[in-house]
């Protein structure tokens, strides 16, 4: 990728390309961002596991040339928690969609955040269930049309950033697939952060969300994303400012005792040696 000055092919599982994703899907931008972050950090692919759930986002582990675990719907974080605890010196990145992480897997999301276990979560938010053909999800904007809300969505919308912060995540950021240069930066920060790190990435689904809501093609939707977000990255905002649901930037970056470290300390207290393989 010349514009980033890096060869990211090393971190792509090229033999399984093309992806299952539709033309114009934003998920490819996120994969590029992830591979770019891996490349800049020069990670050892055998020491990284990308864990995915079910849905469009859950396919990400197949496309990056690291260890890959494609799990069950909603449970990626629970699998990742066991994996990280078993081998704490592995780098574990979880890719989950809005439906996967906030509907069927909402409970695991808040509890993994509460533990502050050292996982990096890339939460792909396209506001819809893409893999099953465009149904309403927990982040579908109020009033939007989906195949299960053709007359408009009457349910209120989850704010990923608010939930992550309330549940105790210690690094919380939001970006969009419009902000191509920002995605790898946020992923690098999240991976370097010792604790539960959430990067919500707004990503376009022109096939379902776009067409059902007359938002045009992929490039029109990228402009729509730019206009929805204020374009001003935030460092820290007060609570009232945070209520604007589509601000981007880093909302929290705090050092709080990380869970595998707390567990290691607990073992030491009772005479155990929590193995780092």
């Amino acid at each position: 990728m010349p514009k980033l000055g890096l060869n990211i092919d090393k971190y792509l599982r090229t033999q399984v390309l093309p992806t299952v994703w539709c033309p114009g899907c934003g998920n490819g931008n996120i994969v590029e961002g992830l591979a770019t972050a891996f490349s800049r950090m020069e990670v050892d692919p055998t020491r990284v596991v990308v864990v995915g759930g079910i849905g469009c986002s859950g396919r990400t582990p197949f496309y990056v040339q690291t260890n890959a675990m494609h799990t069950t719907h909603g449970r990626a974080l629970a699998y990742a928690t066991g994996l990280k605890m078993a081998q704490p010196d592995l780098t574990v990145v979880v890719t989950a969609g809005d439906g996967d992480a906030l509907a069927i897997g909402g409970n695991h999301f808040i509890h993994a955040a509460r533990r502050n276990i050292d996982l990096t979560v890339l939460l792909y938010n396209n506001g819809i269930y893409g893999m099953t053909g465009g149904q309403r999800g927990p982040t579908t904007p109020f009033g939007s049309r989906t195949t299960t809300s053709l007359a408009g969505n009457i349910e209120r919308t989850f704010d990923t950033v608010e939930i992550a912060m309330a549940a105790g995540a210690t690094y919380v950021a939001r970006t969009t697939t419009f902000d191509m240069q920002e995605i790898p930066l946020r992923i690098q920060e999240a991976m370097a952060h010792p604790g539960f790190a959430v990067v919500e990435i707004l990503t376009q689904c022109p096939t379902y969300y776009g067409s059902l809501n007359q938002l045009g093609d992929a490039s029109d939707m990228l402009i729509w994303q730019r206009d929805l977000t204020d374009g001003v990255p935030v460092k820290m905002l007060n609570r009232e400012e945070l209520l604007g649901p589509l601000r981007t930037g880093v909302f929290r970056n705090e050092k709080v005792t990380e869970f595998t470290q707390a567990y290691s300390d607990l073992c030491s207290q009772v005479g155990g040696n929590y193995g780092h393989n």
Binding site: R75, Y79, T81, M85, N107, G272, Y274, G275
Partner: peptide, 25 residues
């Protein structure tokens, strides 16, 4: 030095167990 985890439900308990097996436990 082994891992004991009390999870948020049984869905996550078995998921963590499978994840841990793939972590070498």
């Amino acid at each position: 030095g082994g891992v004991f985890l009390q999870m948020e439900d049984e869905l996550s308990a078995i998921a963590a167990v499978i994840g841990a097996a793939w972590g070498g436990s």
